[in-house]
Amino acid sequence: MNPGLKLLLVMAIALEISFTQSLIVNVILICVSFIYILFNRVTFKALIGLIFWPLFPALGLFVSQWLYGSAGIHFAWILFTRIYAYVFLGATFTLTSSITDLALTLEQDFRLPSKFAYGVLAAFNLMPKINEEVQIIKTSALMRGEALHFWSPKLYFKAILSSIQWSQNLAEAMTSHGFVEDQGRTHYRVIKITAMDWVWFIGLFGIVQVLLFFIRY
């Protein structure tokens, strides 16, 4: 499925289950997403992580709602499953789509201005480098006997300085490679939204509507 449409679908469903209160639909969404993920060759470790980490917020919400909420245990279970529904819905997107494909389709099919698509893509591709830079900033501060934590203004200050410098370099590099802002582009890799994509999108979204309409528990 087209990554842009898939993201839209996932977000629309996630938004919808935030407002509706159906335990069964939440569980159905979790199961369907889970099966979908299994078919997409996910590693065992990633799968365990998906199940384990959300347990903390889900359990936390459950217990507090159970103890202090006015809506009883059924609502507590809805919140519990809601967290997992978010996570598994999100995973159906993140585990199967690449950021590059998403940027390409957002530009070509969703009319996102190319400077946003490629600008953000350029920044996201620097993610490993940014991770490194954070370590470098922390380490060089340590060498001066200064420990930087997430509450230290200096850490963010230096991160922003790097960002300013890198954004300048990246923008110039893109310009010198022939990227012109606000100009039409031709595409080496064309991503289209096919009829089949629309069928899946409308079909799945429709099914969720029907489920939410009929299953109120």
């Binding site: 490629y118 953000v120 920044a123 996201f124 940014i130 960002s163 954004s167």
Partner: peptide, 29 residues
């Protein structure tokens, strides 16, 4: 203005802060 350079700058700052919080993720748990 929304220039290419500013868009990249915003994205970079967002990623930097995102990664710094990521390191503090254990706090929440």
């Amino acid at each position: 203005k929304w220039t290419l350079r500013n868009i990249i700058l915003i994205a970079l700052i967002a990623i930097f802060t995102g990664i710094i919080f990521w390191g503090a993720g254990f706090l929440y748990t």
